[in-house]
């Protein structure tokens, strides 16, 4: 029989990720970006194991959805491959730096809490201010994108036709993806919040292509960073398994609800919770350092 003494936290984690999974598709805020800061704020696990679980969770979600989106023509290897040549390296470096900080310094985890809170503030601002363009107009193509022949097409049911698209500004996008890869690896966050605006607003990918290709980018970046966490023993099944099961079941329920209703207030509510988590993470970090 289960001793609820030790089973309490894994069970709480399961319920918590189930709720995140349900809310994420309804609010349009990625589950990966909610998991790490909220778990840091409310659960007793070390941030090393939380980041490891966050990476595996984001990886599992992306691996489960990317193939279906690729077969529809929405997620495109032609866009993803040149981008991850850069971001895979930075996500590995992010993982190494993140684990080094917590393991090399006695107070390292508090610096990570503070940095995570600051990153959350940035994510909050990006989410609040970035617009989504359904079908951006691409008037000129940069030489790299032209040489690589980056283009694609998918059947859009709302228009009842096949939509063709091209992307541009690859040289400007690459440094942005490098920064995103580093943050994803360092904090174990899903990076859809940053990938999508870069793909959509900067490179001119239609919003559906941007969200789908972002999934594909996450599969590679998070898988590469996961090796850093595995090699340092920062992946604990006791934390990973309830999280993955919870988010998987929750996101299926959430996706069904989202088809019927996506009230705007839910998005703002979740973003408010994110802001609260940012404050709590910074407060936890500062009090750990004895500064407050």
């Amino acid at each position: 029989m289960l001793d609820l003494g030790w089973a309490f936290w894994p069970l709480a984690l399961f319920v918590f990720t189930l709720v995140i999974g349900i809310i994420a598709p309804i609010s349009g805020v990625g589950g990966g970006v909610l998991f790490v800061p909220l778990t840091v704020a409310f659960f007793p696990f070390n941030v090393d194991f939380i980041r490891g679980a966050g990476l595996i969770m984001a990886l599992t979600s992306a691996l489960s959805s990317a193939p279906h989106l690729m077969k529809k023509g929405l997620a495109n290897l032609r866009i993803m491959a040149p981008v991850v040549v850069v971001s895979m390296i930075t996500s590995i470096i992010g993982g190494i730096v993140g684990l080094w900080v917590t393991n090399a310094f006695p107070t390292g985890k508090y610096y990570i809490y503070i940095a995570l809170g600051i990153v959350l503030f940035i994510i909050f601002v990006v989410m609040l201010t970035s617009k989504r363009v359904e079908f951006p107009e691409v008037t000129s193509i940069d030489p790299i994108s032209a040489k690589l022949g980056i283009s694609g097409a998918w059947y859009e049911p709302s228009l009842d036709k096949v939509v063709e698209y091209r992307t541009t500004k690859m040289p400007v996008a690459l440094p942005a993806f490098a920064a995103v890869g580093f943050i994803a690896g360092m904090f174990g966050l899903g990076a859809g919040w940053a990938n999508v605006p870069v793909l959509n607003l900067l490179m001119g990918a239609p919003i559906k292509v941007a969200t789908s290709t972002s999934m594909l980018i996450i599969t590679v970046n998070d898988a590469a960073a996961a090796w850093v966490y595995l090699a340092n023993g920062a992946v604990l099944p006791l934390i990973v398994i309830p999280s993955v099961i919870g988010i998987t079941i929750g996101s299926r329920i959430g996706a069904r609800i989202a088809v019927r209703a996506r009230p705007r207030f839910v998005r703002y509510l979740v973003m408010g919770v994110m802001l609260l988590a940012a404050v709590l993470d910074i407060q936890k970090g500062l009090s750990g350092l004895g500064m407050i």
Partner: peptide
Amino acid sequence: MKEEVVVEPMNVTFARTME
């Protein structure tokens, strides 16, 4: 009538293997 989309073989193979 629904139009057909031809997805590149590189993408299809990647997707099937990943699945």
